[in-house]
Simulated assay, not measured.
Amino acid sequence: MNEIFSERWLSEAVDLMVRLVEAAGALIIFVGAMVAFVRFVVVGLRERRAEAFVPVRLELGRFLALGLEFQLASDILRTAIAPTLREIAELAAVAAIRTALNFFLTREIKEERDELARREPAP
């Protein structure tokens, strides 16, 4: 029983989880980019107004924010087992950067959404 939960086994299991979560985050970002690209082309062919692209940017922003959350989760998992001080410092730096990116991305999405709501005529 002790062998099943050895540090080596646990390390390998967490490494697999890290890879899966990283892959999920990358896939979310990739799918979001492809969806946004297709919508960008469709909107670009139908309309020539810059405002028409705002919903495309908002949708891409949501995918990016979600993908960043998955990437941050994988970083946290990576340092879950006996982290060194260096790994903790790297996690702190990466977490700060990704959190800041996510904060500003979320703020921009909210501002764009509010701007769209102001432009729409009241019912």
Rank of each mutant, 00 (worst) to 15 (best):
M1T: 09
E3M: 10
E3G: 09
I4K: 11
S6V: 09
S6G: 13
S6F: 08
E7F: 15
W9D: 09
E12V: 12
A13E: 04
V14M: 08
V14L: 11
D15C: 10
L16Y: 06
L16G: 13
R19L: 15
R19T: 12
E22Y: 03
A23M: 09
A23L: 13
A24P: 03
A24K: 09
G25W: 02
A26M: 09
L27R: 08
I28T: 15
I28S: 09
V31Y: 00
G32R: 00
G32S: 05
A33P: 00
A33D: 02
V35A: 00
A36R: 01
R39C: 07
F40S: 15
F40A: 13
V41L: 15
L45F: 14
R46I: 12
R46N: 08
E47G: 15
E47W: 12
R48M: 08
A50V: 12
E51A: 15
F53A: 11
P55M: 00
P55I: 03
V56L: 05
V56F: 01
L58D: 06
L58W: 01
L58Y: 02
L58H: 05
L60A: 01
G61M: 04
R62L: 14
R62W: 10
L64H: 02
L64P: 02
A65V: 09
A65Q: 02
A65C: 02
L66D: 06
E69L: 15
E69N: 11
E69F: 15
F70Q: 04
L72D: 03
A73W: 02
A73P: 03
A73M: 09
S74N: 07
S74K: 12
D75R: 14
D75Q: 13
D75S: 14
I76S: 04
L77T: 01
R78F: 06
I81W: 03
I81D: 02
P83G: 01
P83W: 03
P83V: 02
T84G: 03
L85P: 09
R86E: 07
I88W: 07
A89G: 15
A89R: 15
A89W: 10
L91P: 00
V94R: 13
A95N: 03
A95W: 02
A96P: 08
A96W: 15
A96L: 15
R98I: 08
T99C: 15
A100S: 03
A100L: 12
N102H: 06
N102Q: 10
N102A: 10
F103C: 05
T106G: 13
R107S: 06
I109F: 12
K110S: 11
E111K: 12
E111W: 09
E111N: 05
E112K: 11
R113E: 06
D114W: 05
D114C: 13
D114Q: 11
E115S: 14
L116N: 05
L116W: 00
R119F: 04
E120T: 08
E120S: 08
E120A: 13
E120I: 13
P123M: 09
